[in-house]
Each structure stands twice: as structure tokens, then as C-alpha cells.
Design a binder for these strands. Structure first.
Lengths: 215, 215
DNA sequence: AGGTAATTCGAACGTTCGTTCGAATCTCAG
DNA sequence: CTGAGATTCGAACGAACGTTCGAATTACCT
């Protein structure tokens, strides 16, 4: 009963093919995709389990085989989305040494993922406060890690260029610039992430770098 | 029946004192205040009419004497909040001529009002997509006016300083920086709006002004 | 003090909510 | 083909939802 994890199911002597993700995981991923779409359109509270049932083509009761509550469903969507963006960022930062370039990579990575997964990223940013207790703290940890990475990049920039600006305000302003995009970005008008990342990067980096240097 | 407007009530031969706001308007304002608090905390969809009843100390049915639906209640809150901020902005811009100073006034006005009315401003920004049809279009008009003012200020700055940057991206990035504040501002850590407005203004204006000038 | 309109309320309406449960169906190794 | 576990479903649960209505109460003018 309930929703078994991949691990338990595999260990339950149902080990199959090998590398290929099992049926359970594939179906769960499909449901998460459809749910993301519905949450994006109607909001978490505004979306009903019956909406999710309709969107995913599975019966209302059938959904509960894959997760134990609506809240956990939102958690799974947010965790997967946030984990992926952090993981991709880390991979892309490895090749770069210059602090300014690192910040530009940070912005590009964020905007690219945002525009390629608009719905999931809107659900992540717009429904950031609805999770409670355990769900909330686990997600807060990822959020904090992402925030700390950005702080580190900016402190690095300050150090190597001898700059002086309030890191906290700068980081949070940058997040605001980037996350707000879900309220206005129109693919037909605003186009690809690369030019957007360059323009936002220009505004932010010039703003932060053309200030007075340390004594 | 329903909720009479101030105008109709006064014309109904109940003309009183004069300038003083009547009982009806005062009570309505109280309800709006309490509702703002609840919407801020639980979100529009997450807040029930019974929550609003409890918060305002009025019976569930009694609320409907002042507005005909939960949606109209949100509309009243958002319209009043947005109208006020636009009106205050216009008044403060009248005294200023320098384009850079005008942009700084814009930022200061936004942040001051935001921090002095955090709950209402969160409801305005976070529940921006829930209103439908007539409510939505009327609010969109105010939003558009506010947006156009900011565009005009930046175009003025570009003109007088001979700058070159994408206005649309700059305006929307600025809005992002400012509006995102509802997700992170902590009065004990981040203090008063004036230094915040100066720091955000520094980042944004330097970013936009230190670019290459026109040919 | 009396009377009329403004204001408030208890109780209920029909609907939809998230979740549960036991039975039906499907999948696949033996 | 068979049996056992994995998966799906129809039907129902009690609770909570937004809204309505007629009666009760209050406030104010004459």
C-alpha cells in the first residue's frame, strides 16, 4: 500500500533490465509533469486533486498510489526542480576561473533553466511558502545552498577587484531581477536566454563594479 | 440590498456632517485591513471567508453587506493599494527635474510604500494573476500606467545622458529587484527604506549609466 | 419616544475539497 | 497458463468551501 520508493521496490526482488528507470519512476515523472502544468496555471491552492486527475489521465484514487498527499506532490516538484538547477550550476562553474565570468555563468544558468522550464520554475518561485514543517526545511536547505553559492561568487568578485558594496542586498536584488521574469517574459518579444542574461548581467555587474573601490 | 456605494448612500438623503467619512466607509476600510492581513498570511485561495470573518470580528454573512464576493474584496484591496502608490509617486515627481533624481525618487517611493504596507504590497504582487475579467482589466490599467511612468523616466535618462540600453529589460529588472523584497526583507536586519533605496538605486543606475554612450 | 433605514446575524444551501478503502484489473516470472 | 504482486479504479467519507436569505438588532432623524 501507499507509495513505495524506488529502492524498496527494486530490493523487493523485482529487479529488472538495469540502468533503465522502472515503470513506477517513469509514471511518477509523467504525473509530476502534468501536475506542474496545473499548479503553474491555477496555483497550488487553486488546483484540486481532481484537476490533477484530469490532467494526468489517471483516476483520482490512482494518484495516491504515487504520493501520499497533495503537499508531498508539490514538494517533489520543487525539490527536483531546485536540485537540478543547483547541480547544473555546479557543473558549469567548474570550468571557469574569472570571478566576473562566474557571475555571468550564474545568471545564464538561472535564466536558461528558467525559460526552458517556465512552469516548474514558476511553481518553485510562486509557491515558495506553502510547504510546512519537514517539507519546508528540506527545501530551505537547497535554497540556502543556492543562495550561499551566489554570495561566494560576489565576495570573490569583491575581493579580486577590490570593490565595496553590500553583498546581501546585491545578491537578493539579483535574485529579484532573475526570478521576476516569470511575471513578464514573452517568448515572442523577449526571445532567448543568452541575450537576456547578457543584458541583465550588464546592468547588475556594471552596477556593482563601477562603485568606489576600497580605500 | 448588497453593498451600496458611498455616492448612493449620501444621495439617499442621508447626507451628514460633510468631509468626514461615513460609518460605512470606515467599517469597510477596517474589514479591508483585516482581510489584507489574512490574504498576506494564507494567500487568496488559501484564505476562507470564515478566516476573514474571524479576523475582522464580523459574522460570515455580515461581510457580504460590504462586498458581493471574495474576488471583489481582493480587487478592492489591490486597487486601493496600487492607486495610492501611483498617486504618491506623481506628487513626489512634480518637484524634481533631474532625470537621475527622478529615478531615485521612483525607487524610494516604491520601497517606502512597500515597507510601510508590507502586507498589502505582498497581496498586490503575489496575487497579481487571480482576478478575472472586469476586475483584471481595471487593475491592469493601473499597472500599465505605473509601468509607463517608469519607462518614461528611463527614456528621459537615456535621452539627456546619451545612453544606450534596452529600456524594457531595464524597467522589468528594476521592478524585479524592488518587488522581490517581499520574499526576504527582515526589518531587524535590513532596516529602513532609505538606505535600501540608495543601495538598489546605486546598483541599478550605475549599471544602466556606465554602459557605452550612443555613437 | 417612535419609526425607518442601515447594519448584523444564525442557519442553511448546494458544491467541491483532500483523502480512504476494498475490489477490479493488469503485468510478468515461473 | 497460473498465481502473486503491482497498479488502477468507482464510490464514498466527513469537512470545508463561497454564498444566500429572512429575521433580528442597531443607529439615527423627527
Amino acid at each position: 500500500m501507499g507509495s513505495p520508493s524506488t529502492a524498496t521496490r527494486i530490493s523487493e526482488r523485482h529487479r529488472r533490465a538495469a540502468a533503465a528507470t522502472g515503470r513506477y519512476d517513469r509514471r511518477l515523472a509523467e504525473i509530476l509533469d502534468h501536475a506542474t502544468e496545473v499548479f503553474c496555471e491555477k496555483g497550488y491552492e487553486g488546483a484540486s486533486m481532481r484537476d490533477l486527475s484530469r490532467a494526468s489521465g489517471m483516476s483520482l484514487a490512482g494518484l495516491y498510489y504515487y504520493f501520499e498527499s497533495k503537499e508531498r506532490l508539490l514538494f517533489l516538484i520543487q525539490k527536483h526542480t531546485f536540485s537540478t538547477i543547483v547541480q547544473r550550476l555546479k557543473a558549469r562553474l567548474e570550468d571557469v576561473a574569472d570571478p566576473e565570468q562566474k557571475v555571468r555563468i550564474f545568471i545564464l544558468n538561472h535564466l536558461e533553466y528558467f525559460l526552458a522550464n517556465r512552469q516548474a520554475m514558476k511553481v518553485l518561485t510562486h509557491e515558495a511558502e506553502v510547504l510546512k514543517n519537514g517539507f519546508a526545511t528540506e527545501l530551505a536547505a537547497i535554497k540556502r545552498e543556492y543562495y550561499r553559492i551566489c554570495v561566494k561568487l560576489l565576495d570573490e568578485l569583491k575581493e579580486k577587484r577590490g570593490l565595496e558594496f553590500p553583498t546581501r542586498i546585491a545578491v537578493l536584488s539579483l535574485f529579484g531581477m532573475m526570478n521576476w521574469i516569470y511575471t513578464w517574459h514573452n517568448p515572442r518579444v523577449d526571445g532567448d536566454p543568452e541575450p537576456l542574461a547578457r543584458e541583465m548581467g550588464d546592468i547588475f555587474l556594471r552596477g556593482v563594479m563601477s562603485g568606489k573601490a576600497r580605500r
